[in-house]
């Protein structure tokens, strides 16, 4: 019997993406977002998850895809664990949880940019489309480092008060 794994799938700007189902904490429908001024652009805002405040990440922006079209349904929240904290990834819409034969798995091609390669551990070849599977740990690391590092710069831009009048 071939090994298989369960992948939580979702759609984002035409991409078909997946996360190991065990890494998904829960999925929430569209939530009101409270923007965080001056935060890094990939920080979409804060959501109230049953009394817990969770930072929502604009996954489109993080993956350098065009912004969420205004006429589409609002993004939903895929909640993942980041250490002891939770983090929400905003995605266009949810797919199914699918169980796939591990034999269909392939690693990213050598020509993949290093940056991309560190985010995805590989892909499943499905009849209709490739399902790209996140390397959750590394992807979250990348998100955290981007959200915190560049923030400092944007904070700096706003520092000199004189040139902004």
């Amino acid at each position: 019997m071939a090994l298989s794994e369960k992948i939580f799938t979702f759609h984002l700007d035409g991409l078909f993406l997946g996360i190991d189902v065990n890494e998904v904490h829960e999925v929430l429908p569209t939530q009101a977002l409270t923007p965080v001024p001056l935060a890094h652009p990939i920080v979409a805002g804060l959501i109230n998850m049953r009394g817990q405040i969770v930072v929502a990440i604009d996954l489109r922006r993080f993956l350098r895809r065009p912004a969420h079209p205004v006429d589409q349904r609002l993004p939903i929240n895929v909640i993942v664990r980041n250490g002891t904290n939770l983090m929400s990834l905003l995605v266009d819409h949810m797919g199914d949880v699918i169980e796939i034969d591990s034999g269909l798995f392939t690693k990213p091609p050598d020509t993949t940019a290093t940056e991309t390669r560190s985010l995805f551990r590989g892909a499943y070849q499905l009849p209709s489309q490739l399902l790209l599977v996140f390397d959750t740990t590394r992807a979250i690391e990348a998100i955290v480092s981007q959200a915190t590092s560049k923030v400092l710069q944007s904070g700096h831009e706003s520092n000199p008060p004189s040139d902004r009048r």
Binding site: T34, V36, P37, L38, L46, I53, I57, I143, A147, G155
Partner: peptide, 27 residues
Amino acid sequence: VKPLGELLASQTQYSGAALMGDGSIAL
């Protein structure tokens, strides 16, 4: 007062966030 967590730790303008009576969030 609720902490903002690691992702916004460098946002020194905010010391946390709070839930309002209507469920909205205020920094």
